[in-house]
Design a protein around this nucleic acid. Structure first.
Length: 706
DNA sequence: ATCGAGACTTGGAAAAATATTC
DNA sequence: GAATATTTTTCCAAGTCTCGAT
């Protein structure tokens, strides 16, 4: 749809808000059909008409499988081995069934695709509430203009972005304004022709009022509302998969709004229209009841019974035309299994890594340009943890990974320094200067020779070829596994580099975070500086200074007190004056008063203290200073590094669990609740777990089968 | 061989929840 | 006990990678 000339799109479809706007049924959208033939599209109206050939294999064998599943259900599965066996059994059985089926079927099906579930029940998805017009006008050339609800909604999206950096971007404003005008009735469209003449402040005021009202709500009321909301959505938060009750991750359908891409996205500011039931495909067990469609006069786009996938629902994103899926939560069986498989694969790589490194080092010497490029690319992926860098479309931000690096991204410096400077995933800048092996440097120089800055460095290499090659070295290996492997390997190495990581929990956590940070830096996991970062640092330094001065004063007082033990010594302390805030003033006012007070000079405070309390004070202040110093250091060094991404995606949780066990650190100090649930499968690991598995005896039988 | 659909993981920012501080 | 700081969760964009059609 985004290919269409935007002016041709009917208003109602663009906004997707009016009653008669009934988007196309998913199953007939694009490319003449939804999905490949192996995915069974049972368009509801015609599902009964599907012949046996068109039914998913799994459905035909559904009854038998169901029995087997329920038998297994009660069995407690030991951490890792059982799921794997189960998976293999399933595959084997599927294979047999597939052969049987093939004999009677004219349609050929893939035989190695595994069945993910036998029964699946859920309540569909939760749609955002209908738009409620507020009636605040747009000002055009200073004149009030009452907008029809569709236009008002889009104007309100924009108003909510006032004051953000998006509005500074030409592309954003243009895309928005083009789409906004399409929502206007003809007469208004003729009149409203320039964004600069539009004033959204009245709408913004309304949004601010809403916010203020919400903020000033008493906590009790807030809690009440929260609980009511939880009850309203409860129905959608769980699914039943093979008899297991599982949490659904994103049961909410994405609401309409302005598309906010990352970096210089050509589509930023476009209106992302509302999603309707007609857009949505539900994936359900054949026996599961079809959830009633929540909107009168509407119906689900289609219902499928696809046992080869784990999604519960999907629709196409109106902006990118990509699929959006509703998944189970990270703690679900599906996700836990694939997580385990991921780390298992990374561990496998450790057994092949020496061979692979020899292989690509040898490849550098090859006379064949293709082999050279493949080897250099793999070298960079392995050493620098780069992403592979698939091709990107024109309607996306210009970002690159290894294979899509262009000449402009690389600077070579004799004798062997390579400087990489490019925008990677999410338009995050990757900047690194590294020493590389002489031959790598040499090859890179050759690859750059005679090319324009916009040419690809690896012009003879395709991502698929690289991955095919990796598969020839180790089954199932692909480029991303190197990131997982190197991240986990590094953490394990660092955590084992020191016997005792600190005398107390605080210092041990500091040590862990340092290791975590090294991994995050390796993976280039950055975050933007929090807005109040420098302020926060300033406050910390301030506190530190204050504590140091106080310590000096205490020490001086101690001298005096020791001279005449019975008297009390005077201790001087400089502190910020206490702020007095009048009761009845607005939030903004209070904030202003506080900020004002920050600027006032410190006040002198003199107290009389006895020797005992002075001594106590010294010890306490020294401890406080130590803590502040450590805090200041870590906070500064972690300011632009995001630890969570690697923790969630790259670090084998067993490394962390084992470390916590060895050093008596409670796991919740490192994994917050959601991560503990996600990594439940790893909690039983032995404290001598190593990544990769070395010859240390592990309690993990499947992993130890080296 | 190539291409694009499709499904799944990974990513930072923003919002919400919770802890800390005065 | 309210305001603020920090942590955790949510959101949804943006990657990777496989597979089947051509």
């Amino acid at each position: 749809m985004h290919q269409q000339d935007p002016d041709e799109i009917p208003l109602s479809e663009l906004l997707g808000n009016s009653g008669e706007s009934v988007p196309r049924v998913v199953s007939v959208a694009r490319q003449g059909g939804f999905g490949a033939p192996s995915i069974q599209v049972a368009k509801k109206s015609s599902s009964a008409a599907l012949s046996e050939d068109e039914l998913p294999l799994a459905l035909l064998i559904g009854t038998e499988r169901k029995k087997e599943c329920s038998r297994r259900k009660g069995k407690v599965e030991p951490c890792r081995k059982a799921p794997k066996r189960k998976c293999e059994r399933m595959k084997a059985e599927k294979h047999r069934k597939a052969k049987k089926l093939q004999a009677t079927s004219t349609k050929h099906r893939a035989e190695d695709e595994s069945i993910k579930w036998c029964s699946l029940e859920h309540n569909g998805v939760l749609f955002p509430p209908e738009y409620e017009p507020h009636g605040r006008p747009l000002l055009y050339d200073g004149c009030e203009i009452a907008l029809p609800p569709e236009a008002e909604e889009v104007a309100t999206f924009y108003a909510s972005k006032l004051g953000t950096v998006y509005l500074e971007k030409e592309t954003f404003r243009k895309n928005f304004f083009d789409d906004f005008r399409k929502t206007l009735p003809v007469d208004l469209r003729k009149r409203i022709v320039k964004l600069e003449h539009c004033d959204f402040s009245r709408i913004r005021e309304y949004l601010d009022e809403l916010k203020e009202r919400k903020q000033s709500m008493p906590p009790s009321k807030r809690k009440e509302l929260r609980e009511a909301e939880a009850q309203r959505v409860a129905h959608y938060t769980v699914a039943i998969v093979d008899g297991r009750k599982e949490k659904v991750a994103n049961y909410r359908v994405e609401p309409p709004g302005l598309f906010l891409g990352r970096g210089d996205h050509p589509l930023m500011g476009r209106v992302k229209r509302r999603i309707f039931p007609e857009d949505v495909t539900l994936n359900l067990g054949r026996d599961a009841p079809i959830p009633p469609c929540p909107f009168k006069g509407h119906d689900w786009g289609s219902i499928v019974h696809n046992q080869r996938v784990t999604w519960l629902a999907c629709w196409r994103d109106p902006i990118s035309d990509e699929y959006k899926y509703v998944w189970l939560s990270a703690s679900s069986h599906f996700k836990a299994m694939s997580d385990q498989e991921k780390f298992e694969k990374a561990q496998q790589l450790s057994k092949h890594i020496t061979k692979i490194r020899n292989e690509y080092t040898k490849g550098l010497e090859s006379a064949d340009r293709h082999t050279q490029q493949r080897s250099v690319a793999l070298y960079l992926i392995d050493k620098l943890a780069l992403r592979v860098g698939n091709e990107k479309g024109e309607d996306e931000a210009d970002t690159v990974g290894c294979c899509s690096l262009r000449v402009e991204h690389i600077t070579l410096q004799e004798p062997n320094i390579v400087q990489l400077d490019f925008l990677g995933k999410d338009s995050m800048r990757y900047f690194n200067r590294v020493r590389v092996e002489a031959l790598v440097f040499h090859r890179l120089r050759e690859f750059l020779k005679g090319k324009r800055v916009s040419d690809n460095v690896f012009d003879e290499l395709k991502v698929e070829e690289l991955n095919d090659y990796l598969k020839s070295l180790m089954p199932g290996l692909s480029a991303k596994v190197f990131r997982t492997y190197n991240a986990s390997y590094t953490l394990d190495k660092l955590l084992h580099s020191v016997k005792t990581p600190g005398p107390d929990i605080h210092s041990r956590l500091l040590f862990y975070n340092e290791a975590n940070k090294d991994v995050a830096v390796l993976c280039n996991h950055q975050r933007s500086l929090p807005k109040t970062h420098s302020l926060m640092l300033e406050r910390l330094r301030d506190k530190l200074e204050e504590s140091r001065a106080y310590l000096e004063a205490l020490k001086m007082a101690r001298g005096k007190a020791q001279a005449s033990p019975d008297s009390r010594a005077q201790v001087t302390r400089w502190r910020r004056p206490v702020v007095e805030i009048p009761e009845d003033c607005s939030l903004a006012e209070r904030k202003r008063i506080r900020e004002e007070a920050e600027k006032r000079p410190k006040e002198k405070q003199v107290v009389n203290m006895g020797l005992a309390s002075i001594t106590r004070g010294i010890a306490q202040t020294q401890e406080k200073i130590r803590r502040l110093e450590a805090d200041l250091k870590t906070r500064d060094s972690l300011a632009t590094v995001s630890l969570s991404t690697s923790k969630i995606n790259y670090l084998d949780p067993r490394i962390t669990v084992a470390w916590c066990k060895r050093h008596e650190v409670p796991i919740e100090r490192i994994f917050p609740r959601a991560l503990q649930e996600k990594f439940m499968w790893s909690m039983g690991v032995s404290e001598d777990f190593r990544f990769p598995i070395s010859n240390v005896v592990s309690n993990d039988p499947s992993g130890a089968s080296t």
